[in-house]
Design a protein around this nucleic acid. Structure first.
Lengths: 153, 153
DNA sequence: TATTGTTATACTCTATAACTATA
DNA sequence: TATAGTTATAGAGTATAACAATA
């Protein structure tokens, strides 16, 4: 065996320095979650961002695109195709706003609300699976810690 | 004021449904962290993935690209340009492996080790800043919870 | 036949600049 | 002049297929 190779067992902890960083672990977890979320949302023809957008439109009907972009922290320009996607599928609609013809009030259709309801259940199941190694209190702690970090923003 | 508009104060919690999902909070935190990490690593001409790669090469000199790709969970094909980048800058080198001319043993240069040392300090500072709202025990808890979630993989 | 590194390519996500219509 | 929505575009990040060299 050549001297420059390394034993298989040593590979397990080869990223041990990185594992001390919260950010590295967070990215790895995010990648795992995201891959599974993409998979489960595909059933509904949704991506993570169209799911999020539909959620906010259902929760706050009447928002315009600038407000929505601000809430979800995405560029207005990138929101256009997201809204197009949802509107083409009749899940939301762009309604005219009285008094300002520049704006569109975004409203969910009943189909949009129904699809969101079904998708939410599947996302809850997805999280149940992904966080199976944590008990309820640990999940609550994790949620709380993440929200605390977000509070710096 | 048109009926379809919404009061400013209602915008604050417009993503309240999403905020019940750990995944949504995790993505938002990841985005915050990543933006700051990109900023601080730019000083060293590093990206997150070149920093990670350099870390593993320094920790485990002699790995080949297939092993490294497996450790970092990135495609071998995408690793090529990452290694090219680090090698061009003389931070690592591709050394021949005795007995297998297909493989390269990846070795850090002393410049690579020195740059990594300096970059690690800056990444520690970056995490210190980003997690300022958490005390030491909370940070340890967060790290532990994230590693538990990764254990399903 | 299988593996290693590589190239080419495509798709998603994200960021920026500039346009139009309206205010 | 400023704002809302839009278009175009470019840069990352990521995934897949196929190839040459070597095992």
């Amino acid at each position: 065996m050549p001297t420059a190779t390394i034993a298989t067992q040593d590979l397990a902890n080869a990223d041990e320095d990185l594992n001390n960083f919260i950010g590295y672990n967070l990215k790895r977890v995010y990648s795992l979650l995201n891959a599974d979320l993409i998979r489960v949302l595909a059933e509904f023809g949704l991506r993570a961002v169209t799911f999020s957008t539909l959620s906010v439109v259902v929760a706050r009907p009447g928002l315009n695109q600038t407000q929505l972009a601000s809430i979800l922290v995405i560029e207005r320009s990138n929101l256009v195709q997201i809204i197009d996607d949802l509107a083409t599928r009749k899940l939301i609609e762009r309604a005219p706003v009285a008094g300002d013809r520049r704006r569109h009030a975004l409203l969910p259709t009943s189909e949009g609300q129904a699809l969101l309801s079904r998708a939410q259940k599947v996302v809850v199941d997805h999280e149940e699976r992904m966080f199976a190694s944590l008990h309820a209190e640990e999940r609550a702690t994790l949620l709380n810690l993440l929200q605390k970090i977000r509070s710096i923003d």
